[in-house]
Write a protein that binds this DNA or RNA. Structure first.
Lengths: 136, 136
DNA sequence: CCGTTTTATATCGGGGTACGATATGTCTGT
DNA sequence: ACAGACATATCGTACCCCGATATAAAACGG
């Protein structure tokens, strides 16, 4: 098993992986801002649209998929609601929970962003595969 | 060519990709902080160690690989130097350039972090492959 | 059912990091 | 040797996340 010490090539591989990641994220952030939303708002909208459950996600659900603290998700949702990207409504089955939905505007912006991202991700995928092959 | 419109499954794939990414980054950030450095400092050290060139990278080189503005890289290097992780020295061939090297302390912390990251990256790699397969 | 505990959301103050605008010093070409 | 390009540095600002704390609703035990 290729385990213990790291060769210069290993460091190089790790560094190249991170570089590819940052270039992708930079692309994504620029795309979001060009579409008139912040990168965080874009991630929020995607998390809602890609939520697997049968009903809309609650704030706490979004905090988990976005890897945020609950109250950070609260702030993010509030800013997005103010920008008319999402709407919160109280869960009829549990008045503590706020269920979050995309507005029409949110849907449109996300659809446009997701199209370019799918293309970019295909490029990113093969690049990543080449780099990570080096890890053994 | 699977192109134009996005299916619900496409959104789900995009969302899962981002989720996997965030979990990895969260792991990495926690690891860095446990090692006593900030996530940014970790990335800086890796960028230096993984730098391909014949001599040490200059501040501007690091800005490029870290996808930062020049002056953001300056600040990052200064904080890292204050924490005794890196040392800057003027390029003998061009007095404008500051070449950045890891200190002994920086080397040790990076080596420890890189070991755990290599393992985690191997897990991450197969997870990513599964998710991105869905993109067609 | 009533009081206690747990869960979910919300508020406030603070900190880290990146950015825009700007300044200074160094090199390069003519 | 001087104009313009380049590399680094400084300063004030903004955004986003977090810790600590608060409020409200549900779940649970006796």
């Amino acid at each position: 098993m290729s385990s213990r010490p790291l060769s210069p090539a290993d460091y190089r591989t790790l560094a190249q992986f991170r570089y590819a990641l940052r270039v992708f994220q930079r692309f994504s952030e620029d795309a979001a801002r060009s579409a008139g939303v912040t990168p965080s708002q874009h991630q929020l909208m995607l998390a809602i649209k890609g939520w697997g459950g049968s009903e809309d996600p609650a704030v706490g659900d979004l905090a988990e998929v976005l890897q945020l603290k609950h109250h950070s998700a609260v702030e993010l949702v509030q800013r997005a609601a103010q920008a008319d990207l999402v709407i919160a409504s109280t869960d009829p089955d549990d008045a503590r929970r706020q269920l979050i939905t995309l507005t029409e505007k949110g849907e449109e912006i996300l659809a446009s962003l997701s199209l370019t991202h799918r293309d970019e991700l295909r490029r990113f995928r093969s690049e990543m595969a080449d780099i990570l092959d080096e890890l053994g």
